[in-house]
């Protein structure tokens, strides 16, 4: 994509193997500052592993990760977060016994020592993601849509420059997805760069300016959502070998 905006995140030749499996294989990508982009791919493609590598949860075997111009590969997760990159989890990880307010305040405390300041910030963040009237509820009493929002709110409360959102829409029904899409867009409009992992194509097409496609650990395509959805390699990765040719034949026949 265009080089007009300097990348906030630059991944080069990133590799990680688990035993004989190359979960992430020589991945290179650059996320422009202020953008809203997506990483897609079939199940098991290595998307979450890539997030874990970038955010410091696991250490890469090879390759570099530069965040805002600083090398961060191998840096532990809490320091990556302090540097300004926060991830969410695909399987929500609430502080179950805590209230919604307490959950978000943990994120807010990163840059705020006093409880009153952290809670004030947490309330403001909760309002942004539509959790303002749930503040006193226990996190484990929230339905899945609420938990996804909580995951988002907690990460947002750390004042990140880059948010890595791992399937924040998985498990939501269409109307809940329609509700969360503008929230994500507004976060980006507030100045936070966002990289999504997403299976919900409605969201990807709606939100992302640029999409990377991962399959068997390798990047197989990238481009605008419109270009990606007609890319032969991408269709094959999702639907199997020969699918692209069959689809083309069907279209020609019509």
């Amino acid at each position: 994509m265009s080089d007009a905006v300097p990348p906030i995140l630059e991944v080069r030749g990133l590799q990680k193997s688990f035993g004989g499996l190359r979960a992430v294989d020589d991945v290179t990508l650059a996320v422009p500052g202020g953008s809203l982009t997506a990483l897609i791919g079939p199940n098991g493609a290595g998307k979450t592993t890539l997030f874990a590598l970038v955010s410091g949860f696991i250490t890469p075997d090879a390759g570099t990760v530069a965040f805002a111009g600083r090398q961060i590969a191998g840096l532990p997760a809490h320091l990556v977060c302090r540097a300004g990159m926060t991830r969410t989890f695909q399987i929500v990880q609430p502080f179950a016994g805590q209230t919604v307010l307490e959950n978000i305040a943990v994120g807010a405390h990163l840059h705020r020592v006093r409880q009153a300041d952290a809670q004030a910030h947490a309330r403001a963040v909760a309002a942004r993601v539509g959790l303002a009237d749930q503040l006193d509820k226990r996190a484990d009493s929230l339905p899945i849509a609420g938990r996804k929002r909580l995951e988002l709110a907690r990460a947002l409360a750390t004042d990140p420059r880059l948010l890595l959102l791992d399937e924040v829409m998985a498990g939501l029904n269409p109307s809940e997805i329609a509700e969360i899409i503008p929230i994500i867009r507004s976060i980006r409009d507030g100045g936070v760069t966002i990289l999504l992992i997403e299976h919900v194509m409605q969201a990807v097409v709606n939100l992302a300016e640029h999409v990377w496609v991962l399959s068997y650990g390798r990047l197989i395509a990238e481009g605008s959502p419109a270009a990606i959805t007609t890319d032969a390699q991408v269709i094959e990765a999702y639907l199997g070998h020969g699918a692209a040719a069959r689809m083309q034949a069907m279209q020609v026949a019509q």
């Binding site: 955010s55 809490h78 977060c81 943990v106 405390h109 409880q115």
Partner: peptide, 26 residues
Amino acid sequence: KHSRFGAWLTAVRENEDAARALGVDV
């Protein structure tokens, strides 16, 4: 109950990975 250290400690009790992702040095 009312300090950052306490909030972080409780977060560690509830979920270490989530705490780490939010910048807590577990």
